[in-house]
């Protein structure tokens, strides 16, 4: 359940929040929506792919963190070592217009966590970092939507079939994922390419293409995990 309310330095004066990454806090996500500004940080760790919102059919862009549902292969006991996408960093916080809201039912709300306000009622260092994060995330959503809409409009999106066979004999077929159609990209008229370059979209496109190299890396991580699991079973 969620119970989202506007954040208020009186009512939430004593509220504390666990900022770290852990499965029990909801960081165990296979696919996390991201914004364009994150692409350079993401591309060296995760495949940046498109998928469709199951409710609206609209394309959204995200980072693939795992192979199976509810799996973040980058999550360890110590949290996430590599870049943590803003949508995970924001924890229980949301924006509502220009305001910040919080989900009071989030498992991150915990007396052992970080305070949100100082004794004087000012935002704590942690809350300031969240406010800064939203300054990136909020306009980033519009910028990213415009980018994705352009990809679709120029027919630069194509489905990608990712099927992986693992050493434990199982295999996975990942569906509903899309990437940049490189043939269509090469076929664009010069004027359109120039537009993409000037708008900064071309760089985003190449980051998405480069990030595909992370798919086999993820598959290897998953394979190691599966084999470790098997060994564990054999050992008992």
């Amino acid at each position: 359940m969620t119970n989202i309310v506007l954040l208020n330095n009186q009512a939430h004066r004593d509220l504390k929040v666990q900022p770290g990454a852990a499965a029990r806090y909801g960081d165990n996500q296979r696919f996390v929506a991201v914004v364009a500004g994150e692409f350079p940080f993401l591309a060296t760790h995760y495949p940046i792919l498109l998928t469709k919102d199951a409710n609206t059919g609209a394309f959204l862009v995200g980072a693939m963190l795992g192979i199976d549902e509810g799996e973040n292969l980058f999550l360890t006991d110590r949290g996430m070592d590599s870049y943590r996408p803003l949508n995970l960093q924001r924890g229980p916080f949301f924006t509502s217009g220009g305001d910040v809201a919080i989900d009071l039912d989030s498992p991150r709300i915990d007396a052992a966590g970080q305070p949100l306000f100082t004794d004087a009622g000012e935002p704590s260092v942690y809350l300031q970092s969240i406010l800064a994060l939203f300054r990136d995330l909020r306009p980033g959503l519009d910028i990213t939507k415009a980018f994705v809409d352009t990809l679709v409009k120029l027919r630069l999106v194509e489905p990608i079939d990712i099927s992986v066979a693992f050493d434990d004999g199982t295999s996975r077929q990942l569906e509903d994922l899309y990437t940049v159609n490189q043939d269509a990209l090469r076929a664009l008229p010069d004027a359109q390419v120039l537009d993409l370059f000037r708008s900064g979209y071309l760089q985003l496109i190449y980051l998405m293409i480069a990030s595909l190299k992370q798919v086999p890396v993820l598959a290897r991580m998953k394979n190691n995990r599966l084999l470790a699991g098997t060994d564990g079973l054999l050992g008992t």
Binding site: G57, V152, E158
Partner: peptide, 11 residues
Amino acid sequence: QKIYDYGLQPI
């Protein structure tokens, strides 16, 4: 109704 609200994607 969803097609009226959101449209279908071309791809």
